[in-house]
Design a protein around this nucleic acid. Structure first.
Lengths: 202, 202
DNA sequence: ACCAAGATGGTACAGCGGTATCATGAAACG
DNA sequence: CGTTTCATGATACCGCTGTACCATCTTGGT
């Protein structure tokens, strides 16, 4: 047998090339050849590791979601050990804003995938439902913890607020993406609402 | 000279066909031939009234924005004569949710355009900045009126709340689009925040 | 050492989509 | 009544893109 190559590693290399190209030229404009060039491999190899373009795109979406989880986890870790509910929530929400170049490309491609998933039944729309639902659950748990600790105003509707915060972040993220707002302005607005929900912490 | 035809009317007919097709199959999948078939004209005619596909797409985007203004105006009119700030704001926000089939297609295509505009410099990103900015101004004015009338809680930051409401609506609209939430659930959340800003009205 | 199987390269093929070209039809105006 | 000009139809062309096929090289196992 020949040089046994780590398939997963190569697939990752190609997938990351796909996301880079999609972030630069737009997801609609990515072709197999361009992905191959970006990854520094031949067209044949892209075919070899992903039979078809559809499978490549599917894997790209999968990669984006896991990468998002990873980035959120990083932010939570960076919030210190045993962070409070507000810190955790803030970490999740801020990750929804395109700040650095990677996260900008990330959200652009992610949104492009979401638009695709609405019409193309080949791309499952489930990731765009399960992911947000899980995020809502997580934020809801954190808010519930805070409520039981007496950190929040009375009469707080936990689930509604969790949904609202995530929708707000998504909307602000889009506005940053199209250049209507700076990431700093969006961050300030998010913090304003966190201050509303956690009046006791500055 | 031959049968003089109303160019604007034909262009409108073709443009509406474009949006219908884009709402059904996705903006990335629309071709000149399909638009022609949907409009009930020949491919040549689409070329005749819009020289190139890029110009057709550009006109489509333009049409979407004016149609959005029109739908918002309808909603405000339907709110009765001399509607209060809350009614006007609610009209604007609810229009951001995909309710009927037309508005669903509308928002899907609009989002697809926004994603395109980020990368393709042919499509100007300006509409996606000017439009939301104007909406923020309008909501800000309404909130300011309400604040001066003493309808809102003390310490209200008008501009921040206007931006937040619009971003929230956009985020909720997207979640409805991908099927994560029903329009009714999104409406309830919007109304919850309106109740927060206008505590005296039910 | 050798060979079987995996890895990689080059290239051809078919389909599609936007655009261009040619030709024809229709009607308003002199 | 014709001709000029707009409107419309049919079709050809060209480039691109995904996919398939064939050839070659590499290397691990025996």
């Amino acid at each position: 047998m020949p040089k046994r190559v780590d398939h997963e590693e190569r697939r990752a290399q190609i997938t990351e090339a796909l996301v880079r190209v999609a972030g630069r030229r737009g997801l609609h404009a990515v072709g197999m050849r361009e992905v191959a060039a970006e990854a520094g491999v031949s067209l044949r190899l892209v075919q070899y590791y992903f039979e078809t373009k559809e499978k490549l795109l599917l894997h790209g979406l999968q990669w984006l979601t896991t990468r998002l989880s990873s980035r959120i986890a990083d932010r939570v870790r960076a919030a210190g050990e045993a962070p409070g509910p507000r810190a955790v929530i803030e970490a999740v929400l801020l990750e929804a804003l395109p700040t650095d170049e990677e996260s900008r490309a990330f959200h652009l491609v992610h949104t492009a995938y979401a638009v695709l998933a609405v019409t193309d039944e080949a791309l499952a729309a489930q990731p765009f439902i399960d992911g947000p639902n899980a995020a809502e659950d997580a934020l809801g748990d954190q808010l519930e913890r805070a409520r039981e600790a007496g950190l929040t105003p009375p009469g707080l509707e936990v689930r509604t607020e969790a949904i609202s915060l995530l929708a707000l972040s998504a909307g602000l993220g889009t506005s940053v993406l199209v250049g209507q707002r700076t990431p700093e302005a969006a961050t300030a607005i998010l913090r304003h609402h966190l201050d509303r929900l956690f009046p006791n912490e500055s």
